[in-house]
Nucleic acid binder design. Structure first.
Lengths: 300, 300
DNA sequence: ATAATAGTGTCTTTCAGACAGTATAGT
DNA sequence: ACTATACTGTCTGAAAGACACTATTAT
């Protein structure tokens, strides 16, 4: 192209002289929020095991936040796409390979990393932990699944002239064996006239590196809204599953009980009956189902 | 903190020696997708004006893509948050100030910018163009609202062993007076077993810089899904509006007609009646409504 | 028998879509 | 009178929530 700019340069000349180092550039990293749903130890052998939501964290093997827990992640290489970087870092730090992740949010606050300006693109995934082997690698000293518990602490609604402000405070606790980390998150939803915005703040955080408590909390919120209209919950059950098992997964993510009869009716178009049954426990055997990939024609 | 890492350094020593330049870093930019809904010229003075969806583009004043049209945007400064960068760049390039934008997606393909590796965080907003004055500034040679038309070209559904692939091809045309830019977008939705993913490809693009056709197309999709459950459409009408006017806005964004009676019933909880009316046209006067900011208690 | 889960049928309420109609303005 | 829009009432069918009931297993 022979168009010249104000300095009289063609595009080729402009690009040849372009100095990417003229301005100070941030570093870009990826962070992966992997959730799974695991069985709790049953207190009664006749009962079905309860399920718990878990998130994968690694123990940092170097500064900053040495010894604290963080989401797996790392810097994006200069010749590598974001999705590729996420897949590579997950493999390097946790040994997990081949899971599908979707972009969650990009965190760019100044000062969120003590080393230098780091902008982090976070990814979200729901996986069946039983089908994965996790082992710490790279500069991770350890890698573990942490049980996620979120407790609502307080709701403050303030009316303003042109709307209202809703402040919600929650305690987020992450636990793996004897290790417990977490803190308090404050979510501020502002409705002013016609625009509404959401902000998230860390009020307290112990044992968790960077702003990762915020990232995990946002991932939780996205997970809950997404599980209602999409089929992501199926990535949490093995190939063959009972409807009660699938329902427990939904209940764990949503944090409330679902009516078995209605649940059955609602997921019916998404599953196929097999002629296998699971024989276990002191009760009627459960039919095994599988996901029906021909289930289609949805909005998105 | 006095914990030492493998090299025997404390956190303070580590940070003092940290060399952010040891690895080549990408540049980070923000791009803003601003949509509005504008009146078309009425062909019949008794009829209500039709509405059109529009997107704001600037004409590039320098290489690369000199003279082509692009989303307003620019590089993030090293001491500036992402949201702040988006607000600043929008002000500098278009003169628009004080609009609320939400993060859309972060685009990080290698080679999406001929200058250097650029990762771009895109922002989405719906604004009432009548309440804004747009004027090109900075290195923008011009700034204009382009009417958006999307035409569906082709749908290909291929069954695979464990699911299916849905390929949709659409023509996206952006027009402002005598200027027309646009191209063809291919959206690939892959369902394989339990995971589904979406990819977007530019098959052809003329007159538009970078991968901005893809960004606009994704913004369109997000806009359409969001308008169904949120109140963003209200940012497109003035303070006082008639229900027909509001309905036209919804119809324009969704690209389909809505039943007036049902629409009235559905938006009723979100609006308040005023005792003013709009006197115009050869028909019964319309009551003016305003947004009811006390409308609350929704899912998210 | 009992406890526990698996699975079915159906009632009711809510909500979305469709349609039919009346009301009120300008020309 | 005619046309165009404003506005209201109601029917229908689908979907969501709640409940009652039967079936089957191990102990």
């Amino acid at each position: 192209m022979q168009i010249r700019n104000r300095q009289g340069l063609t595009e080729a000349e402009f690009l040849a002289r372009y100095d990417a180092g003229a301005f100070e550039r941030p570093s870009v990293s990826v962070d992966m929020v992997l959730f799974t749903v695991a069985n709790a130890e049953p207190d009664d052998h006749r009962k079905l095991p309860d399920k718990m939501l878990q998130v994968l964290l690694i123990k940092r093997g170097d500064h900053p936040y040495l010894g604290q827990w963080a989401l797996p992640g790392g810097f994006v290489n200069i010749n590598e796409g974001l999705d590729a970087a996420a897949a590579r870092e997950l493999q390097e730090e946790t040994g997990i390979d081949g899971v599908y992740m979707e972009q969650l949010y990009t965190w760019g606050d100044v000062g969120r990393d003590p080393r230098t300006r780091v902008i982090s693109c976070s990814y979200l995934s729901l996986v069946d932990a039983d089908s994965l082997r996790v082992h710490a690698g790279d500069d991770a000293a350890d890698a573990r699944w942490f049980t996620v518990r979120e407790t609502h602490l307080q709701t403050v609604r303030t009316m303003t002239e042109r709307g209202y402000v809703l402040e919600e405070r929650s305690q987020v606790t992450l636990q793996a064996g004897d290790v417990a980390v977490g803190g308090v998150i404050r979510v501020v939803r502002t409705v002013e006239g016609k625009v509404s915005r959401v902000e998230r703040h860390i009020e307290a955080s112990a044992g968790l590196a960077f702003d990762h408590l915020k990232v995990i909390d946002y991932g939780l919120e996205r997970l809950r809204t997404k599980v209602e209209w999409s089929d992501i919950a199926f990535t949490l059950v093995p190939d063959r599953f009972t409807l009660a098992e699938l329902r427990k997964v939904y209940e764990t993510i949503l944090g409330r009980e679902l009516h078995a009869a209605n649940f059955r009716r609602d997921v019916e178009p998404m599953v196929e009956e097999t002629n296998e049954v699971r024989r276990e426990g002191g009760h009627r055997h459960a039919k095994l189902f599988r996901f029906n990939p021909r289930w289609a024609e949805r909005k998105s």
